[in-house]
Write a protein that binds this DNA or RNA. Sequence first.
DNA 1: GAGTCCGTAACTATACATGTTACGGAAAGG
DNA 2: CCTTTCCGTAACATGTATAGTTACGGACTC
Lengths: 141, 141
Amino acid sequence: MSTSCRFAVAIHVLTLLAYGGGAALTSEFMAGSVNTNPVVIRRILAALRVAKLVSSQGGPGGGWQLVRPPEAITLRDVCRAVEESTLFPLHSRDPNPRCPVGANIQTALTAHFEVAHQVLEQELARTTIADVMHEVKVLAG
Amino acid sequence: MSTSCRFAVAIHVLTLLAYGGGAALTSEFMAGSVNTNPVVIRRILAALRVAKLVSSQGGPGGGWQLVRPPEAITLRDVCRAVEESTLFPLHSRDPNPRCPVGANIQTALTAHFEVAHQVLEQELARTTIADVMHEVKVLAG
DNA sequence: GAGTCCGTAACTATACATGTTACGGAAAGG
DNA sequence: CCTTTCCGTAACATGTATAGTTACGGACTC
């Protein structure tokens, strides 16, 4: 339903940082693993930095590091950092207020959409970057 | 996270059909309630017809009707009919297979994304068009 | 001060959603 | 029949978002 793969890429780069065991990684290195341009990685990392999940440092030997241990970063944190907050948007124009359904449907929809969003976030909160890193390690053998 | 309001509009028109108590409604009438063009409504109804939720009939007195009672149409059915099947897409290009993370991250992500999608659908399945219709009736007073 | 790396603007290409017009075809009802 | 009504769908315009790319300034290390 989402149109962007930012969530997948964000989890990818955070897993790389966790996998590296604390060493700083450059956006160019991570772009090599993700198979994209370093600027794309920096844009996503900028959003993760706003969410206080990573920090950056310029200059030689610089790069990006996790601010928290990977056990303390859930997929919910990552999703909130890089995706839009609305799971299902309402009408693009306001419905007809002179129709009993049009006048009240958005109130009803908002309640249901919020519950669905909360349920989704609860599920995402059950998985951490450390979990993903371990799964990748097992798969890599 | 979704970029389209098709889900909201689809629930809206199905609620209108349920509200009408079985009478056929035209796309022009429903467009008046949604506040959009009849073609937009027909496009969404066409998807709902593929999902066997509504039927259409041309000519005078024609229009659209529910195929099932509104108690038997869940928001999950509606979502499946009008939204894309992927909640969170994977990378736009395949990650680097020579990186242990890049080679295995998609397998790990797919499993988590599928669970999240299932949890979301379970929640959506708990609400029916009849529920939404009753809520709208209460709000309309 | 030279090299490394981030930060960000600017631009392109692509894709999608929405809105709109237009027109063909099917059905109902005189 | 023939007219009216309504669906079905193509075609097009518009706006917006993503992803990718180049470029360049600035900060930091050695």
